[in-house]
Design a protein around this nucleic acid. Structure first.
Length: 580
RNA sequence: GCCGGGGUAGCUCAGUGGUAGAGCAGCGCAUUCGUAAUGCGCGGGCCAGGAGUUCAAAUCUCCUCCCCGGCUCCA
């Protein structure tokens, strides 16, 4: 089945769900019940929320409806009749009112009828294997002022194997959840009592962060960027000038008062600081484009309910950069950014992504001419770099068009990381200028861009992408030496010193445990390589090498294994026996 | 922020009104071991926090904080 066929399949599944709910709980009012990317849901309005026991009952009822194998028929009514049919369904009536057509379609299966555009499967019996996954709430039409609906999510497939595969994938995703895996292998913690949404990087996470930061800085310097460091707080005047107090206040920590009545503001963004540096002197067109990058830590007072592990936090470090350039330079700059983004993502094992171009919204600043020039430049850059992309019309930020890149991880999940935004607003607000070749002042364009988005989010995604099994260049502990017994501590120590000198991140297990236990611990810690040393190795001056998740590789001399591991580090990807 | 479900040892969890429990982890002792758990012993809790009901509260009620599943929002 292709995607469209699956959507129909899931849509019919959602109708069966609604039919079952209506049979068991007739007082329930229907909301909407679409197919989604994977599966389906139906929103219901009901005074008493559904319980897991209800879900069991609903499941049984759905099975019955499938067995009853009702034909699903499409019926058209004019609006008046439709209103009559839906007289007890206030939410459906609301939808009906919004449909401009004179005639509307309904789908009927047995006693159940629902206002619906369709299409649907021909019989309820075509739904073979399904599972209701979760209950949650959602606002009617996604608006928090509207009533809260009960949403039931489900999934269905024609083949049992597909359902099982899907459920397995969910389990797999659950077992890799960075919120559990990360603290378990000592990468980070969230100290809920002392600051929800604030990340504590433990030694093993911190070393990974350092490696990512170093790599990031290196490739920026190699690509014509300069690095900046800016403060975490500044006089609130700056945030009044930038417009953040006006438009972003609800996400900002309250200001800090000093010296009676002077207010300092913790930064939610880095750009105003970069602008101050820009304005610190008169700029010439010869300097442009200026590319300024900073790993800038910002704080945003996110609503408590939206916090989520490392993916949505209150304090985070953006891999921010601002490019000041002329309109004519946008295309070239975007191309350079895209190139850099691809290289960066690929280095972390992401080679599948989706690209979105967002264009001018209804409310915007800047001239239409500039918007067109910029949007055009983004489009040209994407085309020249041979990107497949989707257009999100009107989804740009009010200050300029943007390109977002979402990466697919190894479980085929989509994550938003990279964002590239053209900004007409800030240069205008701060009256940014440079002197052009005619000795006149001209206003530059500003491009904001982040590749990872934030180090925290990127780290969370990386943990799940690699399931905590980081490739050697990132692995917090690359090698653990396991002496078989105390007798071989000395030989182990000798190996340890050699490896440390070669800049490997290495440890030795000096516990009194048996080898099996030591291996189990090292494997659970997801250490990349285990070097086992005992009598045989000491005699031959070798090491028995075990690779995480792969088991025994064989016996190597210290020189050989160092060369192999160095090669693996340099390629930044896993190497297996075939390409060792 | 909203709706629902939760919070008991470092972790996973049992305990529904009457003396706080288990496994793992930790510590100590013994064991000196060849590819995923050696044995014995010991410590460890303001039962998220506060208020109330009760002779008596981990358990019942209320408030607050935090977590989880979603919604909304976003890096």
């Amino acid at each position: 089945m292709n995607k469209d066929e699956m959507k129909i399949y899931w849509h019919t599944s959602s109708h069966i769900l609604a039919q079952a709910v209506k049979r068991l709980y007739p007082e329930t009012k229907l909301g909407i019940g679409p197919a989604i990317e994977e599966g389906f849901y139906y929103d219901f309005y009901r005074e008493i929320p559904f319980t897991p026991q209800d879900i069991e009952k609903i499941t049984t009822e759905m099975e019955k409806i499938i067995k009853e194998n009702f034909p699903v028929e499409k019926i058209e009514y004019d609006k008046q009749n439709a209103e009559e049919i839906l007289k007890d369904e206030k939410f459906k009536l609301e939808i009906l009112k919004e449909i401009p057509d004179e005639k509307v379609s309904f789908y009927r299966q047995g006693e159940f009828i629902d206002l619906c555009k369709g299409p649907h499967l021909s019989y309820t019996g075509k739904i073979k294997f399904f599972k209701l996954l979760s209950i949650s709430s959602s606002y009617w039409k996604g608006n928090e002022k509207n009533p809260s609906m009960q949403r039931i999510y489900g999934i269905s497939f024609p083949e049992k194997k597909d359902l099982n595969e899907y459920l397995q994938r969910i389990e797999e995703a659950k077992s890799r959840d960075h919120r559990i895996l990360g603290p378990k292998i000592g990468l980070f913690s969230l100290q809920q009592e002392f600051g929800p949404g604030l990340v504590f990087w433990h030694p093993k996470g911190a070393i990974i962060r350092k490696i990512i930061e170093d790599f990031w800085k290196d490739i920026h310097l190699e690509n014509g960027y300069q690095l900046l460091y800016t403060p975490h707080i500044a006089n609130i005047k700056l945030w009044e000038m930038s417009g953040h107090i006006e438009f972003y206040k609800e996400n900002m920590y309250p200001p800090i008062e000093i010296d009676e009545k002077i207010l300092y503001q913790l930064k939610p963004m880095n750009c105003p600081f970069h602008i101050l540096i820009y304005q610190d002197t008169v700029r010439s067109y010869r300097e442009l484009p200026l590319r300024w990058a900073e790993l800038g830590t910002v704080y945003r007072l996110e609503k408590i309910g939206v916090l989520h592990g490392l993916l949505r936090v209150r304090g985070f470090t953006q891999d921010d950069a601002h490019i000041f350039c002329r309109v004519e330079q946008i295309e070239e700059e975007i191309m350079k950014i895209l190139q850099l983004v691809l290289f960066f993502l690929k280095s972390f094992g992401f080679d599948k992504y989706e690209v979105f171009l967002s264009t001018r919204p209804d409310k915007f600043v800047g001239s239409i001419e500039n918007w067109e020039k910029a949007t055009n430049a983004l489009t040209q850059a994407l085309k020249k770099k041979d990107f497949q992309y989707q257009i999100d019309p009107g989804e740009g930020v009010f200050y300029g068009p943007k390109i977002d890149i979402k990466v697919r991880d190894c479980l085929n999940r989509l994550w938003q990381c990279t964002t590239i935004q053209v900004d007409f607003n800030i240069p205008e607000r701060f009256n940014l200028r440079f002197v052009n070749e005619k000795n006149e002042f001209e206003q530059p364009i500003m491009i904001h861009r982040a590749i990872m988005g934030s180090l925290e989010r990127f780290f969370g995604i990386l943990i799940e992408h690699y399931n905590g099994n980081f490739p050697l260049w990132l692995a917090p502990v690359q090698i653990k030496i396991l002496p078989i017994s105390e007798t071989f501590f000395e030989y182990g120590e000798k190996i340890l010193k050699i490896l440390q000198k070669e800049k490997f991140r290495v440890r030795m297990d000096t516990s009194q445990e048996k080898l099996n236990k030591k291996i189990k611990i090292a494997e659970e810690e997801k250490i990349s390589y285990i070097f086992i040393v005992g009598e045989k190795e000491e005699k031959e001056n070798t090491i028995a090498v075990r690779k995480h998740g792969k088991g025994m590789l064989g016996t190597f001399t210290i020189e050989d294994i160092i060369n192999i591991l160095k090669k693996e580090i340099n390629t930044r990807v896993y190497l297996d026996e075939n390409n060792l």
